[in-house]
């Protein structure tokens, strides 16, 4: 793979850079697969914090590896970083602006009755195996068990 190592002039927008050998990408893929297996095995330990770390911590690591090694964002022009950052900022703005009202079902002057009922009905129905005779994926739709928490959980504010 002699040609794999020669520096190629890139006329696609990010200056001159090196064309990585095939093995470089295969190694990255191998690392991603190892991380993937850890994220699947993590919950088997049965410790919640370990599951959270192996599931979401590893997802973040995997995502950053894909962005860096496959999408080559690290060698991209800075303007790209800026508008991706702005997009992410809007996403977080949305989350933190809305989350307090969605994650809680009761506030100082309001109560989301529909959501409270949905939680109660859902928890009362257990894991969904009880009422409809099924094993994994068995049984009927949990809609009725859940008290069909209507889509509009606006409740009474």
């Amino acid at each position: 793979m002699a040609d794999a190592h020669h520096a190629a002039h890139d006329d696609h927008g990010h200056g001159e850079h090196h064309v990585h050998p095939q093995s470089h990408y295969v190694k990255v893929w191998g690392a991603l697969m190892v991380l993937f297996f850890i994220s699947v095995l993590g919950p088997m330990i049965g410790i919640k914090i370990v599951t959270l770390i192996t599931a979401f911590g590893i997802a973040i690591v995997k995502a950053s590896m894909v962005v860096k090694y496959f999408m080559h964002l690290d060698v991209e022009k800075r303007i790209v970083h800026y508008f991706l950052a702005i997009s992410l900022a809007f996403m977080f703005l949305f989350f933190f602006a809305v989350a307090p009202d969605v994650m809680n079902h009761e506030g100082r002057n309001w109560k989301n009755v529909a959501a409270q009922h949905a939680v109660e009905a859902g928890l009362a129905a257990g894991d969904g195996h009880g009422g409809h005779g099924g094993g994994h994926e068995g049984g009927e739709a949990p809609a009725h068990e859940a008290g069909e928490a209507p889509a509009h959980e606006g409740g009474e504010h």
């Binding site: 809305v98 969605v102 994650m103 959501a115 949905a118 859902g122 894991d127 859940a146």
Partner: peptide, 22 residues
């Protein structure tokens, strides 16, 4: 991001979803 953020906040607000997710 909007869909996933919405899912996360609902998931946190609805403990019964863990049953459905199973």
């Amino acid at each position: 991001g909007g869909v996933l953020a919405s899912y996360i906040m609902h998931r946190i607000g609805h403990p019964e979803w863990a049953n459905y997710a199973s």
